[in-house]
């Protein structure tokens, strides 16, 4: 099935399909706001949560994309911007999900602990097409750094996206797509 998901997710059917309607193996087209963080951002978000510090963005209804872009050539919003391997974020994701993060976008398989967290909190894990940095660059209409600029290509970004293609790999019931 082809599904449309608007971010941040409000639950209102006027804004695209519901999380519950999206099944493993569905093609999901994302639009709206997408936050970006990879290894070092996850480490810092965990430290912030453990120290009860304010978070750089509101997790509720939002999605995080595991990505570190190449620099934007002149005249472009962003450079190549494809997904990185999700498994490296596995040790951090259950904590983030428990704090309200709904949707994760990356590539490759997840741990059992992540699957359980997705099931428990009714989230989603979506896979973007690995290696397709140029394709995803063309789906991003705006990009700004909102935290940790010192991390360079690993900084926390806020993207505006349009027609961003992904595939549902873990649905809100915790069912995994196995091909």
């Amino acid at each position: 099935m082809l599904r449309n998901l608007h971010l941040p997710y409000s639950g209102s059917p006027e804004h695209g399909d519901t999380i519950e309607s999206i099944l493993p193996g569905d093609d999901v087209i994302l639009s709206g706001i997408l936050y970006v963080g990879r290894d070092q951002v996850h480490k810092r978000l965990k430290e912030a949560i453990e120290a009860s510090l304010p978070l750089p963005f509101d997790f509720a209804g939002n999605a995080i994309y595991y990505m570190g872009p190449s620099p934007a050539p002149e005249g472009f919003v962003i450079g190549a911007a494809g997904p990185t391997t999700s498994a490296r974020m596995d040790p951090f994701s259950p904590l983030l999900i428990s704090k309200g993060l709904s949707i994760m976008v990356g590539k490759g398989p997840r741990s059992e602990a992540v699957r359980e967290a997705v099931e428990k909190y009714h989230g989603l894990y979506l896979q973007a097409y690995g290696g397709c940095g140029a394709l995803y660059s063309s789906c991003i209409t705006k990009a700004e750094t909102i935290a940790y600029p010192e991390l360079g290509p690993e900084a926390l970004l806020r993207l505006e996206i349009r027609d961003f293609p992904a595939v549902c790999v873990i649905d809100s019931r915790g069912t995994v797509y196995r091909g």
């Binding site: 990505m67 570190g68 050539p73 450079g79 190549a80 290696g131 940095g133 140029a134 063309s138």
Partner: peptide
């Protein structure tokens, strides 16, 4: 199909095919 589209966009826009260069 996504890979093929990606290669076409990388060529057209003269940007790296993957962000991990």
């Amino acid at each position: 199909d996504a890979i093929r589209r990606n290669l076409a966009i990388a060529r057209e826009r003269d940007i790296p095919m993957c962000q991990d260069t």
